[in-house]
């Protein structure tokens, strides 16, 4: 039985790490594309950001003051048992969000959309979001928090099968050019692309592809992996770098996630996870041990299954 106290402790700690420590994979990826950055202003911006990550770690302060919309992704082992069940888990995530908002401090970004009322704790109606997934043959739970800015850099479009890869490429560039100018997307970014699914799932898959996969990771489907590489190169060929200055650093990596969709359509979504790509993970084992990491490992073979029955052996 995993205690509710341990869940809150793990979640509270993850909030600090996400807000303060840039994930290693992103920082390494940024350093890598900075090596070939062609523009002086864009290079200056990247140098300043690398210095900023150091300042955040040294001072234990948030790396960016727009601490985004803190949210939760929870993966539950099928054999895990939780004290107080799921209602208690959600309560603990809300408590951790509110406490960490005050203690880090994070910016209380969450307001009522009409009245603009702010509880000053990043908790409110349908906030923070909690998304769920499950894992067979496991007795742990993984709690991932992502702090993602929420204003610029995402778009959705219903494409059609005949539009093909050309259509995807056009839409991808349209989005990066529109939101890349003046750096509204806070690039260089991890760009997530959702392909297929229902409209809402298409958005969800793209968002998760951007936020829950690490730089360097490739989709296990070779066709999809090839498109990831192509889109990454395409984004970096636009001629735009950090802050929309002339340069070459737009895409640190591109991740695509797939969902089967309506036979007549090919919905697509594009999302940018910014220069403050904030994510942190805590695994709580059945014995209460807490392990921390930065790779959510969200898209497991079970998540990407395409058959009626699930047996891991079938996919290996």
């Amino acid at each position: 039985m995993i205690s509710a106290e341990r869940i809150e402790e793990a979640a509270y700690g993850a909030m600090f790490r996400a807000g303060i420590e840039i994930p290693e994979d992103y920082e390494t990826g940024l350093r890598e594309i900075a090596k070939s950055e062609t523009g002086d202003l864009s290079a200056f911006v990247i140098e300043a950001m690398l210095e900023n990550y150091d300042a955040a770690r040294e001072d234990r302060r948030a790396m960016c003051a727009d601490t985004g919309l803190p949210r939760w992704f929870v993966k539950i082992g099928n054999e895990a048992r939780l004290e107080g069940g799921f209602v208690e888990l959600e309560r603990r995530l809300r408590r951790a969000t509110a406490r960490a908002t005050h203690d880090v401090p994070l910016r209380p970004n969450r307001v009522h959309p009409l009245t603009r009322r702010d509880h000053n704790n990043n908790v409110g109606i349908n906030a923070p979001e909690v998304e769920w997934s499950f894992e067979p043959d496991a007795d742990w739970i993984d709690i991932t928090t992502v702090h993602k800015g929420g204003l610029f850099g995402s778009d959705y479009r219903m494409l059609f099968p005949a539009d093909g890869i050309d259509g995807i490429k056009r839409f991808f560039m349209d989005t990066l050019i529109a939101f890349g100018k003046r750096g509204l997307a806070c690039q260089p970014a991890i760009v997530g692309v959702g392909l297929g699914g229902s409209k809402d799932v298409c958005m969800t898959l793209g968002k998760q592809a951007a936020c829950l996969r690490i730089v360097g990771d490739r989709n296990p489907d070779p066709e999809v992996a090839k498109l990831e590489e192509e889109l990454k190169a395409l984004g970096n060929s636009i001629g735009m770098g950090a802050m929309g200055f002339v340069g070459s650093s737009m895409v640190v990596d591109c991740h695509i996630e797939i969902g089967d969709c309506h036979t007549g359509g090919m919905p697509a979504s594009v999302h940018t996870f910014c220069l403050a790509s904030r994510r942190a993970v805590a695994r709580i084992h059945a014995d209460g041990r807490i392990e921390t990491r930065t790779d959510p490992n969200w898209f497991t073979p079970y998540m990407r299954r395409e058959t009626v029955e699930w047996r891991e052996a079938e996919t290996v």
Binding site: D59, A62, C64
Partner: peptide
């Protein structure tokens, strides 16, 4: 710059002299 040199800019703040209208408008 960045955007998001939040920690560097935060280091540059030596003192909060006032937070006007914080009750009415909130922290943000």
């Amino acid at each position: 710059v960045g955007y998001g040199t939040g920690a560097l800019l935060g280091r540059g703040i030596r003192e909060v002299l006032a937070a006007h209208w914080i009750e009415e408008l909130g922290i943000a």
